[in-house]
């Protein structure tokens, strides 16, 4: 079950401070990288909810993000619906499709679940690639960002858009924590720990899995609507399984089932990608080597390694400090 620790709070504060500093001081290129990190972070949070807390390792979250991106684009351009409503509609559609996928795949486990979600993802990719309404290989353009001029914000400005994405990521993180701490979230974790027992207690397991997968799909869809607004162009490449695979790599790199870890993973992955690709076009090799190192270290990703090394020590120190403070107060009172 999800628990916040001192280290997790500290890491969140550090990440937030870093993002704010970057958002307020960086130039155009730096802001583009920051926005890329924030959108990827949203997608990997969605994946961590189902994979890290429910054991549902999905290879269709890229496709769910693509559904969000395409639905937003078509609703806001061809259908002429106001972008905020189009965004809501796209998120709802991604959630509904994810719920159906979750319901169908909930009875399979392990490699079979992965393969089933991969099949759904590739079906979505093929459909979007072939259907004329989606623009085929050429994709769709002419995407407008939300108009928030009523509250004095211009999202066409890179800095404002990055800050907007940061606010939404914060809201999504809060929602993820609420989901995992709710009755539904706790039951979902219970199912991962012991599905047979949860069923024997009277829980309709497939329904719980489908509900959480649907919520996770909504978050992936929201990331898709932001991705479409960020680049202002979308193509079927957004739905390929490699996007899902990349998201999974980021979750594992950061720390599966920690929520904070995938945020660390997203930042590390995008920064590494840009830094190493400036030196060599074979940046995937470097990321691959780092991933192998992380997996071989038997830690739960970068953040898992940090937690193992310093988490317990930090909590112990804080507990000692609180105890000695209490003792001091008692002595002073006496």
């Amino acid at each position: 079950m999800f628990r916040h620790t001192t280290l997790r709070y500290a890491t969140l504060a550090l990440l937030l401070a870093g993002a704010l500093f970057q958002a307020l001081t960086a130039g155009y290129f730096g802001l583009e990288i920051l926005t890329e990190i924030l959108i990827l972070a949203m997608l990997v949070l969605a994946l961590d909810i189902v994979a890290g807390f429910g054991g549902m390792v999905s290879l269709c979250h890229g496709a769910l993000m693509g559904v969000g991106a395409y639905a937003f684009t078509i609703l806001s351009t061809s259908a002429g619906i106001a972008p905020p409503i189009a965004m809501g509609g796209a998120v709802a559609l991604s959630g509904a499709i994810a719920w159906i996928i979750g319901a169908i795949c909930s009875r399979s486990h392990g490699i079979y679940f992965i393969m089933a979600t991969l099949a759904f993802g590739q079906m979505a990719y093929s459909y979007v690639f072939e259907a004329p309404i989606f623009g085929g290989d050429d994709g769709l353009s002419g995407i407008r960002r939300l108009d928030l001029s009523l509250i004095g914000l211009n999202l066409n400005d890179s800095r404002t858009f990055a800050l907007f994405c940061l606010v939404l990521l914060g809201a999504v993180y809060g929602a993820a924590v609420l989901i995992l701490r709710s009755g539904l979230g706790r039951s979902f974790s219970g199912v991962m720990h012991n599905e047979q027992r949860m069923r024997a207690l009277g829980l309709t397991v497939w329904r719980v899995k489908a509900d959480v997968f649907g919520l996770s799909g909504m978050i992936a869809g929201l990331a898709g609507t932001l991705a479409a607004q960020h680049i202002m162009y979308i193509s079927p490449g957004l739905l390929t399984w490699t996007v899902s695979g990349e998201a999974l790599v980021v979750v594992i790199l950061g720390g599966l089932g920690t929520l904070v870890g995938p945020l660390v993973g997203a930042a590390a992955f995008v920064v590494l990608k840009h830094e190493i690709s400036g030196i060599t076009p074979y940046w995937h090799l470097a990321v691959g080597l780092i991933l192998i190192g992380v997996v071989m270290s038997r830690s739960n990703g970068i953040f898992g390694w940090i937690e193992k090394r310093w988490g317990a020590r930090l909590d112990r120190r804080l507990a000692d400090a609180t105890r000695s403070q209490d003792q001091k107060e008692v002595t002073t009172d006496a």
């Binding site: 079950m1 989901i179 701490r181 709710s182 009755g183 539904l184 706790r186 039951s187 219970g190 949860m198 207690l201 009277g202 829980l203 309709t204 329904r207 719980v208 509900d211 919520l215």
Partner: peptide, 23 residues
């Protein structure tokens, strides 16, 4: 406590609710 709470939440109908901590 969490083990017992999971079972009790199923019985009381809080195990599938999205709002609030069942425990």
């Amino acid at each position: 406590e969490e083990n017992l709470g999971l079972a009790a939440a199923v019985h009381t109908g809080h195990a599938t609710r999205l709002w609030g901590d069942s425990l």
